[in-house]
Design a protein around this nucleic acid. Structure first.
Length: 268
DNA sequence: CTTACCGCCTGTCGGC
DNA sequence: TGCCGACAGGCGGTAA
């Protein structure tokens, strides 16, 4: 499941092949992603890629006339391939340049490829909270926004309107490292504890980005599994195993349909 | 406004 | 061995 570090790694991986180059066309083999691929994407011809950036888990390709927004969903990946490399199952979209085809492969099709004339005002983007690694994301902000909110802190930090890019894996890890119980009401957490939580969120995401940059060197994206980061996950997927800190058996619960794993002793 | 729940998809896994 | 249902999960949309 691509989370922010994987998206960042994917962006860095395709950038050398797209930035300041001419996108000759976009070949759409299957337009039926989460939303149908925008008509403007189908008909795009010889467009210069002026800029590339990430916002949350969206990859944004900027042109003179507008931008393409790419989301990898649950299972999407981007790979840099040559024109004669075989088309594989779930290779839905190719971004065609002189030399390469940058291919979106997405088995579950939860991703999307959309056109926007002004990406920052697009409805999928405009409501997003700050980037987790930016200065705008700090304890004061997180504490202030939580006032009066009864929602569980884990769901709170996974709310993209609060902060982007904190997915299930890193939410579990950050809450463990911060010693905060995932069910605790967001509005019932002291500023001091949010200071720790913010620090841990930033640390775990930064570490994962660093790893992604080295481990995925020879291809972009990956298989959708947290393989390269897996070895240092302390709670996610570790239910029933002993807590690395106190030895108690890690407990699994469900929150909003998602798996939460935590230590009943260390997280309060 | 907040919160709870649905559903989009297919690969994987456990049970039989 | 093979079938089949349950499940996973980001996240927008909708209902309460």
């Amino acid at each position: 499941m691509p989370e922010l570090p994987e998206v960042e790694t994917s962006l860095k991986g395709i950038e050398p092949y797209l930035l300041n180059q001419t996108l000759k066309k976009v070949e759409v083999r299957n337009p039926n992603l989460r939303w149908p691929v925008s008509q403007q994407v189908h008909t795009l011809v010889d467009a210069n890629v002026k800029n590339m950036r990430r916002r949350g888990k969206y990859i944004i390709l900027e042109f003179d006339a507008g931008a393409i927004l790419v989301h990898l969903g649950m299972s999407g990946s981007l790979r840099v391939l040559s024109h004669d490399s075989p088309v594989e199952k779930h290779d839905h979209i190719d971004f065609i340049t002189q030399d390469k085809r940058i291919c979106l492969n997405d088995p579950r099709r939860f991703g999307c490829v959309l056109w926007s004339e002004d990406w920052s005002k697009h409805k999928l983007i405009s409501h997003l909270g700050p980037e987790p690694l930016s200065k705008a994301f700090d304890a004061d902000y997180l504490h202030r926004k939580a006032k009066g909110r009864n929602v569980a802190v884990k769901q709170y930090i996974m709310d993209s309107g609060i902060v982007v890019g904190v997915g299930n894996i890193y939410a579990n890890e950050a809450l463990f490292k911060a010693g905060i119980h995932p069910m605790r009401a967001a509005g019932n957490i002291a500023l001091k504890r949010y200071e720790v939580l913010v620090e841990k969120i930033k640390a775990v995401l930064a570490a994962a980005i660093k790893q992604g940059g080295t481990t995925l060197r020879d291809y972009v994206g990956g298989d959708g599994k947290p393989g390269y980061f897996k070895q240092q996950l302390l709670v996610y997927g570790c239910q029933g195993k002993p807590c690395v800190s106190c030895g108690a058996s890690l407990k699994e619960i469900r929150q909003g349909g998602r798996s939460t794993v935590y230590c009943v002793v260390c997280q309060t």
